[in-house]
Design a protein around this nucleic acid. Structure first.
Length: 249
DNA sequence: TCGTGGAGCAACATTACCTCA
DNA sequence: CCTGAGGTAATGTTGCTCCAC
């Protein structure tokens, strides 16, 4: 697996410091969820593999694979987790993971819940899982993926916005450059220059009595980085209320 | 009080399956 | 029927926090 080394230098990192989901009752809840997989695993991998096999059993044994995903089925007809505790023993033999498709009703409820809070504490997770006849792990995974999708969408929106900003700045730069060359041309033609009124757009610098828009100050604007997505936060110079937001999910 | 190991969690990258044009 | 693209559920890894010891 290829992971970037700067993986954790992201927006989410500092948010993790605020562990809004931390719930004192968590331990009890999680023990409940992982009932039967409570062996003291020494490594994460072993935990994962055990949890994985548990999931596979449910996914396969529950039979909630795509072929039975007709739009009309009711939530209560989803048996898989109803069998939260039962293992079903399905086709765990071939090791293939069958992918279930959430019903429209389930997706709707999950979406609505996500709108209210994009993370769930263990109690909420369990309640939601129970309501939807899903496993808590499935709810958890759905929220993880949903957060990822939201972030991706927001990134795309940000990117588009920055692209437009860049284009606007380029245009502005071009305009200013043109203005500079025009002013230079005027300056090189004293007979014309003397008879002209000073440009009304130029303001006097009160302290030095020189025009604030002297030629040197009209150099092309240089951004903090050559790229609009430079190392510095691209939003640093953009008022918060002007930042675009990804559409509702 | 401090260090340590385990557990749980979220973020992230990736994989694998499914649908649909 | 085949196929490639896109969507998304699921998996694996990593780092962080909390807590018991």
């Amino acid at each position: 697996m290829f992971q970037s080394s700067e993986r954790n230098v992201d927006v989410g990192s500092f948010l993790r410091g605020i562990d809004v989901n931390r719930d004192p009752s968590r331990a009890v809840v999680d023990v409940e969820e992982d009932a039967g997989v409570s062996s003291p695993n020494s490594t994460v991998s072993s935990v994962m593999s055990e949890k994985r096999s548990e999931r596979e059993l449910v996914a396969a044994g529950g039979g909630r694979v795509v072929e039975d995903n007709d739009a009309g089925r009711s939530l209560s007809s989803l048996d898989g987790c109803g069998s939260e505790d039962e293992d079903g023993g399905g086709n765990g033999d071939d090791g293939s993971r069958k992918k279930l498709r959430l019903s429209k009703e389930q997706a709707l409820v999950l979406e609505e819940t996500f709108k209210q809070h994009n993370t769930l504490n263990p109690k909420q997770k369990m309640a939601l899982a129970k309501q939807l006849n899903l496993r808590t792990r499935q709810v958890e995974v759905w929220f993880q993926n949903r957060r990822a999708r939201t972030k991706l969408k927001q990134t795309e929106v940000d990117c588009e916005y920055l692209k437009r900003c860049c284009e606007n700045l380029t245009d502005e730069n071009r305009r200013l450059q043109k203005e500079v060359s025009e002013l230079r041309a005027l300056k090189l033609s004293p007979h014309l220059y003397n008879h002209m009124k000073p440009p009304t757009t130029l303001t006097m610098c009160p302290s030095c009595e020189r025009t604030s828009s002297s030629l040197s100050s009209v150099a092309p604007p240089v951004m903090a980085s050559s790229s609009p997505m430079g190392s510095m936060s691209p939003w640093a110079a953009i008022p918060l209320q002007q930042r675009p937001a990804a559409g509702s999910h």
